[in-house]
Design a protein around this nucleic acid. Structure first.
Lengths: 350, 350
DNA sequence: GCGTTTCGACGAAGCGCTTCGACGGCGCTT
DNA sequence: AAGCGCCGTCGAAGCGCTTCGTCGAAACGC
């Protein structure tokens, strides 16, 4: 493998001049630059990443601490990872995968100290997350995807659960629905401090109350069976239910199956709006679900950009961003009826 | 950040002794080793990855060239990536993501020359793939997930499509089915040189012929609509069809929807066996699909292990491995009937 | 015409580690 | 008692690059 020294010899210049020509840190005359470029091309020269990293104290590597991917298929996660890797690549960085859960803060610290990564992207942040503290103390640039409980002064990008749930409820209410329930993620996720479960619940409740409606929600395990059971429990609690907001992909399929088995038509008798889901998942249902897509790719891109702005202070640091999910029409949402085919009445007085 | 020199000073030994204590390359007395370990613990020392890499010419990084993830949700892919990252981590390696398609062979070569990775894992290899040639010529250790057309002397791990399709057909034939069709991936994947489409078709045809049955298969676009259309075309071609082998997740959902709409019961009138699919996808259907799960996690683990055995020649190099998909019972496969509820007859003479 | 900038290029000192050759002291043999 | 080998340790030479200080020569001012 050709070294910079080889290039220098061939171009009849000193090693340092080659370095300056490559980095542009100091001016190099056009004639010299051309000779150097020719030499590099002839030799197929590529700078050695390790040497560069050692000398410059910059590895050009970003680390992505990503979730265990145990629950669910991770369509959004895959989308996110892919987009983050692309964006890193476009900016001359590598993306390395660090599979660490919330409890492995010390492993994260050790790895960070090895100087392998210039910055860290942290996915699926828990409400209280030691990994974030470790990164903060270590002084490594980092960006959270998601947010801890208290997010002041901690760089992050996240889904805007408030707006997403409000948009979802608003959409259904506009169609005349008044009795709407949320099929949320499981109690287990809550105990793990999984933030989306909290934020969706809060957002849904707020959105309902803001419209003078009574929120009803259930934490449901991530399984089709749990989804089936949930249907019964929800209908017992509120028989007048005409719409469901679901943010639990696996359970949603159980919900759909159970409704169909009970002869409750989708969307005739019951509308289903699946939120924070991944592209393609809605299409797998019959009828195809109306969904609100999680902005996985966008978060990946913005997360990396934000992180890079911290890594090389040159770029201006952007404020924290929240992105709502986007409504994608399907065939599982329709105007509300009273069960007799007549559209529901107007809004109650607020 | 503490350096090895700091540790040496604190432990009252020379720099090189610390290095030997850490690597075990040369013997170090117990007393000295203890002093060094104490010093490292006191200082919270972690060896610098770049310096180590430069001096040893080993980065402890493996690169994963992964597919664009455009088509489909990539459940299997996510599983694979996750398992590969875990296995790398367990062996003290980092996994970096290199998003490059088949056409970007020169980018791959440049990156390899930068010495960032000690080895390369190549996913979704096409039947003819320049990236493989580039890696071969560069002399970098690599392992393919999947296989090029000619696989002799090229390290790889892959799904055993032959056994998977044979198991699938065998399972259905054991249940009395005689008229079985394959819903394959699209013509577009064939044109991209996507190997699984070929290998599944070959395997299915062979499995059918080996049992004296006439193979019937269709290349179907990756969309529910295409799946719906396929049903009509297949039934036109062979009205006596009682079972479908599908290896196109998205299309499968269309197939199921169309069958149900036509009043063809699953599995009463038509059995569906979804092969090379990812865990959880089957559960999303109603009834839950009987599937043959792609061994994503296993391939990830074996791929990394194989690659590592090439990277540090110490481990013995294993022969190439093919792993079949495993049958996971669901509710979409049942014994064949003649449409009148009676089981089908025995096997025809071979 | 000579001092003073300015520009472009050079040499050398690291970055923090691995690894090779060497060497002192110990226990053993003869 | 002298010689030998071996174990544990040390010093120094890089690995391939970045970056700082410097310096010669061309360009400029008065």
């Amino acid at each position: 493998m050709a070294t910079m020294q080889d290039v220098a010899r061939r171009a009849q210049v000193s090693l340092s001049t080659v370095s300056y020509a490559l980095s542009g840190t100091r001016p190099v005359s056009d004639a010299t630059r051309r000779r150097i470029e020719d030499a590099m091309a002839d030799l197929g020269y590529q700078p050695n990443a390790m040497a560069r990293g050692l000398a410059s104290r910059r590895s050009n590597v970003l680390a992505l601490i990503y979730p265990a991917m145990e629950k669910g298929l991770g369509g959004t996660v895959a989308e996110f990872v892919s987009s983050a890797a692309d964006t890193a690549r476009e900016n001359g960085y590598h993306l390395v995968l660090w599979p660490f859960r919330t409890t492995q803060a010390s492993e994260v610290r050790d790895l960070v100290r090895q100087g392998m990564a210039d910055g860290v992207l942290l996915m699926e942040v828990a409400l209280d997350d030691d990994r974030v503290d470790v990164l903060h103390e270590a002084g490594v640039p980092y960006t959270m995807i998601g947010r801890t409980r208290d997010v002041t002064d901690r760089p992050s990008v996240d889904i805007d659960f408030g707006r997403t749930t409000d948009d979802a409820v608003g959409h259904l209410v506009d169609l005349g629905h008044r009795h709407i329930a949320l099929v949320n993620h499981s109690q287990a996720t809550v105990e793990d401090g999984y933030a989306p479960t909290f934020r969706a619940e809060e957002g849904f409740d707020a959105a309902m109350r803001a419209r003078g409606l009574e929120p009803l929600s259930l934490r449901v395990d991530e399984s089709p069976e749990a989804g089936r059971t949930a249907v019964g429990r929800l209908l017992d609690a509120e028989p007048r239910l005409t719409a469901l907001v679901t943010m639990n992909e696996i359970a949603t399929f159980g919900v759909v199956a159970e409704l169909q088995q009970r002869g409750i038509a989708i969307p005739g008798d019951m509308s289903i709006l699946s939120i924070v889901t991944s592209p393609g998942v809605g299409a797998m249902s019959n009828p195809p679900l109306t969904t609100m897509h999680a902005p996985g790719a966008e978060l990946g891109r913005l997360g990396v950009q934000k992180l890079l702005s911290l890594v090389d202070g040159s770029r201006p640091s952007t404020p924290n961003v929240l992105i709502p999910c986007a409504l994608e029409p399907g065939s599982s949402v329709a105007p509300a009826t009273h069960g007799d085919g007549r559209p529901d009445g107007g809004l109650p007085a607020r």
